[in-house]
Design a protein around this nucleic acid. Structure first.
Length: 416
DNA sequence: GCGGATCAC
DNA sequence: TATGGTGATCCGC
């Protein structure tokens, strides 16, 4: 489904079919819809050709191709016994499904770029990226329209978008903002797990239980006040927030439901007691405190929450209901590449077997048990069933995670 | 165990 | 001119 058309365009005289999957623009992330990928990839390839980097990538791609060839040879035989074993495992893993937790993944929108835009309003209208001529960390929406994105070298980005402004990294500033948002995270889950400066997993379960008994006053939050409060304070403040994307979906409109959720009437807003309201409240507080927006995903486990947080990015949220049906529906057409832990190489190997979505994964478990390691296979199995971790380790526990995982895996062997 | 590969940020 | 730096895990030796 990928690059044959591009190859015909003479982008490269490379025999290897999938080399572009390594080099080319990665549209796995948000904000890349509807741009001229062929043209962008052509520039990327032409600029890269002949460089040390290019040769190295070529070599590594050939190694992957060898792995695939080897794998295809093994594909030949599959025993009845292996098929039975696969089915037994599916049943035992299914029994471990836990839908009782509410896991949230939060992710700041274009974090570094958004911080720089906030602090330098002239940048708002310009295509801009944070990093250097060698490497960009992130870019704003305007730059993304040109194909400029994270992990792209700045000098290639300049070819794609000559007017691009590159702002150097300002880690102290990002750390300070990160501390601000982490204070808010802690109100919802004191054991939240930060993944980086701008991203975290939270377990909302306990918060939600308490929240049911909270009075409105505890769920009321104010808009940021200006130093000299004018009548237009609220709207003025809203304009301060950096506009990241033109087609931002925005927060899901607060449903005026049985809880009586109201649109903001004055300089404050009352949030309801549902998960969605709690997460909306958290994002509201982040925006009021930092003038930056965040996106969030709500799901019964970490793997799903992460995928969900990408769904309505930027400045949006998505909730996946905690039922087996909803989860399986959601998984059905989900590309395997979207799943945390499945990267470029795994994707390419799975594609070689005709597997591109999670439902394909489920259909091919017997085959995969023959071609992949026990741990990789087990991971694929969980993904195909929409399973993931429901336990978020606290900071201190992270170091002992390796033994933790060992025991979990070990136990699942014993069950079979 | 150790080095190489993969993955995520 | 020029394609990150780091930490974690897994795999095969």
């Amino acid at each position: 489904m990928e690059s044959t058309k591009q190859m015909e365009n003479g982008v490269a005289s490379i025999k290897e079919e999938g080399f572009l999957s390594r080099m080319a623009l990665n549209d796995n992330k948000a904000g890349m819809e509807g741009l001229d990928r062929d043209k962008i990839n052509k520039i990327i390839m032409e600029t890269s050709k002949g460089s040390k980097f290019y040769e190295n990538e070529l070599k590594r791609d050939q190694q992957v191709n060898q792995r695939i060839t080897k794998m295809m040879l093994q594909k030949a035989r599959i025993t009845e016994q292996q098929l039975k074993k696969a089915q037994a495992q599916v049943r035992s893993v299914e029994k471990s499904r836990d839908l009782s937790r509410v896991i949230v993944h939060v992710d700041m929108d274009a974090f570094y770029a958004a911080v720089e835009m906030r602090d330098c309003p002239e940048l708002k209208d310009k295509p801009m990226a944070v990093g250097s001529t060698s490497m960009l960390s992130t870019s704003n929406y305007h730059a993304r329209k040109y194909g400029v994105r994270a992990a792209m070298p700045g000098f290639i980005a300049k070819k794609l978008c000559p007017s691009l402004v590159i702002v150097p990294l300002n880690f102290d500033k990002y750390r300070a903002v990160s501390n601000e948002i982490r204070e808010i995270f802690a109100d919802y889950d004191p054991n939240f797990q930060p993944m980086s400066l701008d991203e975290a997993y939270l377990d909302f379960t306990d918060h939600l239980e308490q929240r049911q008994h909270w009075p409105e006053s505890a769920r009321t939050h104010h808009f940021r006040k200006k130093a000299e409060p004018s009548q237009e304070a609220v709207t003025e403040v809203r304009e301060l927030s950096p506009v990241l994307f033109e087609d931002s979906p925005g927060s899901s409109p607060s449903p005026v439901g049985p809880e009586g959720v109201h649109a903001p009437a004055g300089d404050f807003e009352v949030f309801g007691t549902s998960v969605e309201e709690a997460v909306r409240e958290m994002r509201f507080r982040i925006e009021q405190k930092t003038m930056l927006t965040a996106s969030a995903g709500i799901a019964p486990n970490m793997m799903l929450a992460k995928v969900c947080s990408d769904k309505n990015k930027p400045n949006g949220q998505y909730r996946l209901p905690s039922t087996r049906e909803a989860v399986m529906d959601f998984i059905q057409n989900l590309p395997v590449r979207k799943v945390c832990g499945i990267g470029k190489v795994s994707e390419k190997m799975l594609n070689a077997l005709g597997i591109s979505t999670c439902s394909h994964l489920g259909q091919q478990m017997a085959l995969l048990s023959l071609l992949f390691s026990e741990t990789a296979w087990h991971h694929f199995l969980e993904v195909s069933l929409g399973l993931g971790s429901t336990y978020i380790p606290r900071h201190e526990e992270r170091k002992s995670m390796s033994t933790e995982r060992f025991f979990n895996n070990f136990n699942s062997y014993l069950i079979v």
